[in-house]
Design a protein around this nucleic acid. Structure first.
Length: 119
DNA sequence: CTGATGACTATAG
DNA sequence: CCTATAGCCATCA
């Protein structure tokens, strides 16, 4: 799997996160078929071109914290977007137990590109 | 090839 | 809860 395909799968997986839910970098990596690829998810998002419909703001650290430095422009933007989806953000933190995305088997089967077709 | 880096994570104190 | 450490792994100089 080359660099482009990996990015594409990461973006595709993030696009599956429903509004009002969030996921961690590691969770996205795992679903995209890249175990221990949390940093690669961050890397793919860093390269994300503007004007794309990828809901990058729904991706948080496993602790529920926003990955950007508190007060930075990106931090504010992400916080704002989450609030717009009725996700409560307190001091840059989200309650993962409440908002964490939990795709069921059907949802995964519906998008085979994600979980098992790695070759 | 080697070492540094980073939108990460798990663990220990 | 926070910091420090140690793994992690694709990229890049």
């Amino acid at each position: 799997m080359d660099r482009i395909a990996r990015m594409q799968r990461i973006w595709d997986t993030i696009c599956d996160i429903p509004a009002g839910s969030v996921a961690s970098y590691g969770q996205i990596a795992e679903i995209a078929g890249i175990p221990r690829g949390a940093r690669q998810v961050g890397h793919a998002l860093r390269q994300l071109p503007d004007g794309q419909d990828v809901p990058w703001h729904r991706v948080l650290q496993v602790s529920g914290r926003i990955a950007f430095a508190k007060g930075s422009a990106a931090y504010k933007e992400q916080s704002k977007r989450l609030m717009m989806e009725d996700v409560t953000v307190i001091a840059g933190r989200v309650d993962m137990r409440k908002y964490r995305w939990q795709p069921d088997l059907d949802e995964l089967l519906w998008k085979p590109s994600a979980a098992w077709d790695e070759e």
